[in-house]
Every structure is written in C-alpha cells, then in structure tokens.
Design a protein around this nucleic acid. Structure first.
Lengths: 150, 150
DNA sequence: TTTTATGGTTAAGTTTTCTTAACTATAAAG
DNA sequence: CTTTATAGTTAAGAAAACTTAACCATAAAA
C-alpha cells in the first residue's frame, strides 16, 4: 500500500491544480494572452536573464519556436532582447516592467484563492500549516537542486 | 503586510507548479497527447458522466470546439459519446478504460516527484505534514463547494 | 587563416485549436 | 399544433504554435 503522506500530497496537488488552472485560464482569456506566452514570462522571470536556446529548452520547443515566441513578447513590450557584449552570438532576454507586471498579475489570478483559504483557518491551524509547508518547501528545493545537476 | 501563511502557500504553489508542469509537458510530448486533450480527460474524470456543453464550459471554449475535441478522443478510443435516453438532445460522455488509464498515467507523471519528496521527510515531519495537509484539503473543499454555487 | 561549432533568425509550410454561422433533432411552452 | 428553446454537429476559415531547412554572424579550434 502507498504511504499515507504521499497519497495526501497527491490529493492536495489535485485540488490546487483544479483551482489554479481554472483561474489561470480565465486570466489568459480575459487579457488576451496565450498559455505559451504566459509560460514564457514565468520561465524568464524564474531563470533571470537568459538566452533564446535556454528558453526553448525550458519550454521543450526548438530555438526557432522560442525565437518566434520571443518576437511577440518583444512586440508587446513585455520583454527585451539584447546582445551579450561578452559573446555577441548570445542574446540576453529580460522582462520589462510591463512583462513583470503581467507575470505578477497572472500569478495573482492563479493563486488568489489561497488568500481566501488562509483566512478560513483558525490561528492554531495557521501556524501548524505554516510550519509544515516550510518543511515541504525546504525539501523540495533540495530535491530540485539535485535533479537539476543530473 | 500580507499574512505569513498566505505567502507560504503561494511559495509552495510556485514550487509545485514548476515541478508538475515540467513533468506534465514532457509526458504529453512523449506520448503525443495535446494539452487540451489531457485537460479534457481530467475534466471528464472529475465531472463524471457529462454533456458536451458542460465540457466546453469547464474548459472555457464553445460547445463546437468541445464537440470537435471530443471527436478526437473518441477516435483514439479514450472516450465514448452516447445518447441520454432521458433527453435525447443530450450526449453522455464517459471515459473508456484506455482513457482512464491515460489520465492516471499523466497524473502520475505530473505527481510522481511527490513520492520522492515524501520519502525525504523524517517520520515526525511526515505525520505533521500529513495532518496539516488534511486541514488544508478540508477547507479547500468547503471553499470549492461554496464558489460552485455562485 | 581556414575550418568548424555555436547561437540565433528567417522562410515556408503543417498541424492544432478555435470561432462563427448554418443546420438537425429533440423537448417544452404557448 | 405551432412556436420557441436547448443540445449538439458540421463546415469554412482564421489564428497560433510548431517544425525543418537554409542561413548569418560570431567565436573557438586546427
């Protein structure tokens, strides 16, 4: 039989996915952004400054596709593409103010329901949950670092 | 300032999204399913038997689009479409065995890393986290039910 | 300094997904 | 019994995202 914690983690993920996806899709539709566009904004923000191929790899597409997607982001004023003075073959992709703002907004749309959720807990529940999540986050970050090396 | 619990919840969601999306996209690509297709499988599974318009509404597209998407699922043997004997305008959409299996597999691809994560916790951490997540799940379900009414 | 490798762009074309509009069939209301 | 509303399908076409292949510029290697 599967360990109870793993099962509970799975269930929590299912719940969060349902909530978050619904709100995220609605945000995308209402503001006329495509999923790949928003995805790209997240990736750039998380990676920090990066190259076109980096972005493509992160998103699982060819660098041609990444370059084309980037064109649109630049057109819309959400990102900039500049030459790397160190190695002029490289391009340095960064988010603009506007790009950062959109990324924040979509994050908020996706996660806003968590604020409502937090309010529903008693103070005691709040501190227990808070502690538990910190544990999970710490372990997850360790896991992420390990798997990135391989 | 924002309450610490909400902030921690946000961070945990960011982490889980990064992990889950990466694995999910890879699964989709390797097995040649599109994101909307897998999304539809989830929706049908979660909703149980449902109509074409229900599906469209859940996915935020017109019922024409839902009908076309469903065509492909039926072609691939992942879902069935049958008449509702009660009201013959309605169609009853159900997952086939194969459809259920694909949905399970993609879920596992998306959530498998949670098993690794669970193993990393000490027994004490495991039971604390387990309890905390149960609290969150219960509150989230209550929240979901309330918002579905409105 | 010629050759090769790397990073990125452009062009052409394919596939997927979606929309609107017209249509069919059934059910409910007048 | 006629009208209207509901559920779904089909057709035609638009838009998005992706791929491969050819290409340019720069850097590193021989």
């Amino acid at each position: 039989m599967s360990p109870p914690l793993a099962e509970t983690l799975h269930e929590w993920l299912r719940v969060t996915m349902r909530f978050s996806m619904r709100h995220f899709m609605r945000f995308a539709k209402e503001n006329n952004y495509s999923i790949p566009q928003l995805n790209a904004l997240f990736r750039i923000r998380h990676k920090g400054v990066c190259g076109v191929s980096d972005l493509g790899e992160e998103m699982g597409v060819t660098n041609a596709a990444a370059s084309q997607l980037l064109d649109k982001l630049v057109q819309q004023g959400l990102a900039t593409r500049s030459e790397d003075p160190q190695d002029r073959r490289n391009k340095l992709i960064t988010l603009t103010e506007a790009g950062l703002r959109v990324s924040e907004q979509s994050m908020q749309a996706r996660q806003g329901w968590l604020d409502q959720l937090a309010e529903r807990l008693t103070p005691e529940e709040q501190s227990d949950v808070q502690a538990a999540l910190q544990v999970l986050i710490a372990h997850a970050q360790a896991l992420e670092e390990e798997t990135e090396l391989s």
